[in-house]
Design a protein around this nucleic acid. Structure first.
Length: 414
DNA sequence: TCTGGGGTCCTAGGACCC
DNA sequence: TCTGGGGTCCTAGGACCC
């Protein structure tokens, strides 16, 4: 899809059309550009650029927060169109898909004609523009669609892959980012053609396994192959939430509260997907952007807020150097479909939590996510108020404020 | 420039086992 | 006294993608 997020925003607010628009947040926020309209790109604004930089480059741009649900919805509509076109569709991301149209000439005509039909069908169904790359391999098709933007179709005839790629910057190859680009430049490799003609032995020595694959890509060979027809829903490998503070903080109460909130969000999604996490990881980033991760594998997989939160807090306090923190993250990994064996005592405890959380999730569905939270996630000021006057918390004894791995008390269950 | 949030995949070292 | 070869699991870090 072309400038997907921006284009969807324009559907809902046509006055944005043709103007420099930046999706991602307010211009003075900590954050980066998710998408920029073509008018904004003329000023040098592009995705992944800090919002503040975008604002400096293009002060007249309209900054919008964005609406993820809308993008998901429109992504779904695009998918419907693609599915009618070919039974093997693979959504590569929210705004990108691969279609296998092998053997569909009788139905759709030659490649170029088929692409036109598809392009028009997407436009009719969504009123959005897309670009299409046609090729005999996935990678070449992707690069071709990139080159076709905006609103274009590009067909790379079989046998012409290498000559199509040769004049492009190495950065255009999917998988070549800033670092690899820099390393290639250091070897005097700037264009894909340079890469294709470089000594493969040297590339292997310098870049390892990755170098061999890279040389293949430069020649238009695609190790990935075409379609796994059994694909279906490949289940998630990790579930995570992270947060960057508006202002760096070293306040233990604030940091603890955030860890608990993040753990709750992760646990909630684990339950939504009926998954259990064996490994809990945290991430912390200091003011100087130095970033550390710490992980722990639990003896038993879990999807319970307090267990995740306890592990996260423990990892955090062991690693934290007491310096101001910019970002905190909580990650669930080694996801499993069940929690596995547990002792009778544990079984009792988890059963109580299971019931509580079922009720909590229902309340959150009805009244919003903020309605229930572990006390530790409610922030220092809230806890201080409760401490001064427990009456602030109807139905709760002060001792209930502790939030370790304990089973919920009768009052909190209520 | 002052750097999000959600992911995937890869590498490398160490503990431990046979 | 010097020290193998294979495997798995765990942890930490980093590149990359949208």
């Amino acid at each position: 899809m072309d400038a997907f997020f921006v284009s969807v925003e324009e559907l809902f607010d046509p006055s944005l059309k043709g103007k420099p628009v930046v999706v991602g947040g307010r211009p003075n926020e900590r954050g980066v550009v998710s998408a920029a309209s073509y008018a904004a790109r003329k000023f040098g604004v592009h995705s992944a650029m800090p919002l503040r930089t975008a604002h400096k480059l293009c002060p007249q741009a309209i900054f919008v927060e964005g609406h993820r649900e809308r993008y998901r919805e429109y992504s779904g509509r695009v998918y419907e169109v693609l599915q009618k076109f070919s039974p093997s569709v693979e959504m590569a991301s929210i705004d990108e898909a691969y279609l296998d149209v092998t053997g569909s000439e009788r139905l759709h005509g030659p490649p170029f004609e088929a692409a036109h039909k598809l392009h028009d069908a997407v436009k009719r169904a969504t009123n959005l523009n897309c670009s299409i790359g046609i090729a005999a391999s996935r990678m070449v098709a992707k690069v071709a669609s990139d080159q076709a933007k905006p609103n274009g179709i590009l067909w790379i005839v079989p046998g012409k892959e290498a000559s199509f790629l040769a004049p492009l910057d190495v950065r255009k190859i999917p998988g070549v980012g800033k670092v690899t680009e820099r390393n290639l430049h250091a070897c005097g490799i700037r264009k894909v053609g340079d890469l294709a003609s470089f000594d493969p032995g040297f590339l292997e020595e310098r870049f390892g396994k990755w170098g061999v694959a890279l040389a293949g890509k430069a020649r238009g060979e695609d190790a990935g192959g075409w379609f796994d027809h059994e694909v279906g829903e490949t289940s998630a490998k990790s579930i995570s939430h992270e947060h960057t503070f508006m202002v760096d903080t070293a306040d233990a109460g604030t940091l603890d509260a955030m860890l608990v909130r993040l753990a709750e969000m992760v646990a909630r999604r684990l339950r939504d997907h009926s998954l259990y996490a064996r490994t809990v990881q945290i991430k912390l980033r200091y003011s100087d952007f130095s970033t550390f991760t710490r992980a722990r594998t639990l003896h038993r997989a879990t999807q319970i807020d307090s267990e995740l939160a306890a592990a996260a807090r423990e990892l955090f306090h062991k690693a934290w150097k007491r310096k101001p923190i910019r970002l905190l993250g909580v990650y669930a990994q080694q996801l499993e479909a069940s929690e596995g064996q547990s002792s009778l005592l544990e079984e009792d405890k988890t059963q109580a939590w299971r019931e509580t959380l079922r009720a909590v999730d229902k309340m959150r569905e009805k009244y919003g996510d903020g309605i229930v939270s572990l006390a530790a996630g409610m922030g220092a000021s809230f806890r201080a108020r409760v401490h001064e006057n427990p009456e602030n918390l109807p139905g709760k004894e002060p001792k209930d404020r502790k939030t370790g791995g304990d089973a919920p008390s009768a009052s909190s269950r209520r």
